[in-house]
Structure formats: structure tokens, C-alpha cells
């Protein structure tokens, strides 16, 4: 029992500390690494909740794919050794106030609410059930969102290529601007 709680608090502490570091670090590559650590810790939480499949997805897709993508773009646009100027105090104060107000509001609301416990038997979420549900045409099947997501991903891929490729109209304009 106690091991559970220790595990949870450890992960929580990691998540919060690295989150804060992500948004405050003055070196961009470090910020990316902190984000990676946050995402990995989050997948630890998923393991705790017994969702192994999603935890694996979190690790491969989020921590693996997206962070790598971000790091690549950092390498394309920034000098790694470059340090950011610190954010202006006025701006950070206002942002912190807004965020703190939101956080306090949300937390008080959560603490006020009485969550009832479920009396249903827990379902074993194994790969077999997930696969069946994902491709099922039944009432609780997910074939339609699955297909929609596949098209969205294709569209995003094409859009990424078109927007970022060299020699587009925007690029020619910037060429003209430079001249």
C-alpha cells in the first residue's frame, strides 16, 4: 500500500518539478529534455492506473516522436548554446497570477466535489479488447473516429510538407524582402 503512495508522490513530484522547469528554463534544449522527462513520468502514472497499452503509446509516440520532432525544429531554428533573456517581470507576474487563479479555482472545485466510487467490476484492458473495440462497428466501437484520425494524420502530413517546403510563395516573398 505504502509503496503505491510513495510511487505516486515520486512521480507527481517529478511531473510538477520538470513541468515548471520546462516553462522556466532559459536554455531551449534543456526545456525539451525536461518535457521529455515529464512525459515519461506521465507514462509511469498510466502504468500505475493499469493502462499498459496507453503507457506504451505515451512513451513511443509522445516521448519518442513528438519530442524528437521538437528537438529537430529547435536545431533548425536556434543556437543550442543560446540563452533566452529572462521574461519581463510584469509579463511573468500577470501570467502567474492568471494561472494561479485558475489553479486555485479548479482545485477548490475538485476538493468540494464528492466523487462516488464505482461498484462495477473492473475490466481487464488487454490488447485483445482494445483491438476489438477499436475496429468494431458496434455501439461502443471506434471504427469511425479511428478512420477519421487516419485521414487527419494524412492531411497533417501533407500540410506539414506543403507549409514547410522551400520555394513556396512565402519563401519567394522573403527572398524579395531580403533583396
Amino acid at each position: 500500500m505504502i509503496a503505491n503512495q510513495i510511487m505516486f508522490f515520486l512521480l507527481s513530484a517529478m511531473i510538477i518539478v520538470f513541468s515548471v522547469l520546462t516553462v522556466t528554463s532559459r536554455k531551449i534544449l534543456r526545456a525539451a529534455v525536461y518535457l521529455l522527462l515529464v512525459l515519461v513520468s506521465t507514462s509511469g502514472l498510466y502504468f500505475m492506473l493499469n493502462y499498459q497499452f496507453l503507457a506504451a503509446i505515451q512513451l513511443t509516440l509522445y516521448a519518442g516522436g513528438i519530442v524528437v520532432l521538437i528537438i529537430f525544429s529547435i536545431l533548425l531554428t536556434s543556437h543550442i548554446s543560446q540563452k533566452f533573456e529572462p521574461t519581463g517581470w510584469k509579463k511573468s507576474l500577470l501570467s502567474a497570477l492568471a494561472s494561479a487563479a485558475g489553479a486555485i479555482l479548479a482545485i477548490t472545485t475538485i476538493l468540494d466535489f464528492k466523487f462516488g466510487a464505482s461498484r462495477e467490476a473492473a475490466m481487464e484492458v488487454d490488447m485483445h479488447a482494445i483491438g476489438k473495440s477499436l475496429l468494431s462497428l458496434d455501439y461502443d466501437g471506434y471504427i469511425l473516429p479511428f478512420e477519421v484520425i487516419s485521414i487527419l494524420l494524412l492531411a497533417a502530413m501533407i500540410a506539414g510538407i506543403v507549409i514547410a517546403k522551400k520555394g513556396g510563395p512565402a519563401d519567394q516573398e522573403s527572398q524579395n524582402l531580403k533583396q
Binding site: 511531473i15 513541468s19 531551449i28 518535457l35 512525459l39 521538437i70 501570467s95 489553479a103 475538485i110
Partner: peptide, 26 residues
Amino acid sequence: TLMFFVGVYGFLSRRNLITILMSLEL
């Protein structure tokens, strides 16, 4: 919630577009 609002803070205060994107991930 804490993670969410840390992300919001980052979104509001960071200047670099990529770090803003990272805040969004949070």
C-alpha cells in the same frame, strides 16, 4: 490541474514559439 496551469503559464510567458508549443504539450 497543476500541470495544466503550469502549461498555461508557459504559454503566456515564454517568447520562443517552440517553447510555447512545448507548454501546449504539457
